[in-house]
Amino acid sequence: MQPIEPFYEKKLTCVFCGKPFTTQRVRSRFSIPHQVDSDFCPHFRDGNYNPHFYYVNVCPDCGFAFSEEFSDQFPKGSKEIIRFQITGHWTKRNFGHVRDIHQALESYKLAILAGSLKQEKNAVLAGLCLRLAWLYRTENNTDQEMRFMGLALNAYEESFVHSDFAGSSMSEIDVLYMIGELSRRLGQYKKAITYFAKAIEHKNAKDEPKVINRAREQWKVAVEENRQGTTQK
């Protein structure tokens, strides 16, 4: 009996140019984290693989990078901008094999650029920036981790204001929690306390007990950090 490989090939069609290509995915049995941080960043032991290395799909032909959260709708004029800014400068290469950390990081930066030019939802851009921050955390690159956490925070705040998380995998309570937790991690404790409280007091709180319990725990952490007088950023 042949051993099961940790990776499998997935066939995709580029949402921008329409050409087919293949990419890799990690089988779930090989991507079990041994630890998950309070902002949902997973950590893996040897023998397990980080599926977030493969969250972004990169078309080898045109260079457009996207996640499964991207819509297939392009605002008027955006395709021309993408063609000029991305495809016009693209050196054809294949991200469809097993990726190292450098290729994973590059795939996210390509997707953030593509999503920004496409005017993708703030919730989608926030998710990309957050996952990129996670990858930098695993590399102990604190400066870049903080940079992309800050961009994720800004995008989640915009998503909350415009309610553009509707139709995504996130609820309003999820968004409030993420604003609170990223604010806390960036040293903005008063803002964190405010947003955790908004989540806890939300009208639908009883429907989402897991995230509400987590929000209560992190509210206590943020209150204590603020009490200790750590400089408000």
Rank of each mutant, 00 (worst) to 15 (best):
A197R: 06
P33W: 09
I81S: 06
N213R: 01
Q2I: 01
R83C: 04
L117G: 05
E157N: 11
A215D: 01
N213C: 04
Q73F: 07
H162T: 14
S67E: 05
F74Y: 15
T231N: 12
K109R: 14
K233R: 15
Q85H: 09
I212K: 01
D164Q: 11
A111I: 06
A215Q: 03
K220W: 00
K19N: 13
S107V: 08
K19T: 12
G47W: 04
W219K: 14
P6C: 03
Q144F: 05
S168V: 10
I86T: 09
E224H: 00
S159D: 09
E120Q: 11
E106I: 12
S78D: 06
G96N: 02
F160G: 01
K206A: 09
R27I: 14
E69M: 08
Q103K: 15
F64H: 08
T194V: 10
I81V: 15
R227G: 09
R227M: 11
A133N: 01
C17T: 11
V124W: 01
K76G: 00
Y136R: 02
Q73W: 04
N204H: 04
A205C: 01
A205Q: 03
S31M: 08
E120N: 05
E106D: 15
G63A: 03
A197D: 00
K76C: 02
R147E: 09
E172Y: 04
D207R: 09
D174C: 08
W90F: 15
N50I: 05
V58D: 02
F7T: 05
L186T: 08
F74C: 08
G47P: 10
I4S: 04
V36E: 13
I193H: 00
P33D: 04
P33H: 08
F84M: 12
L12N: 05
K11F: 00
M146C: 07
I212V: 13
N48D: 11
I82E: 01
H43K: 10
W134F: 10
A133P: 06
S28C: 11
K220I: 03
P60H: 07
N50C: 10
A114Y: 03
F40Y: 03
M178D: 01
Y189W: 14
M178A: 01
L110K: 14
Q35I: 11
G115T: 07
K233D: 12
R27L: 14
S28L: 14
I212N: 02
S171N: 13
L130Y: 02
Q24P: 14
D72E: 15
N122S: 14
V211L: 05
T87F: 08
L182W: 02
N141Y: 00
K190G: 13
G127H: 02
I86L: 10
R25I: 11
R185F: 06
A152K: 09
K19P: 12
P42G: 04
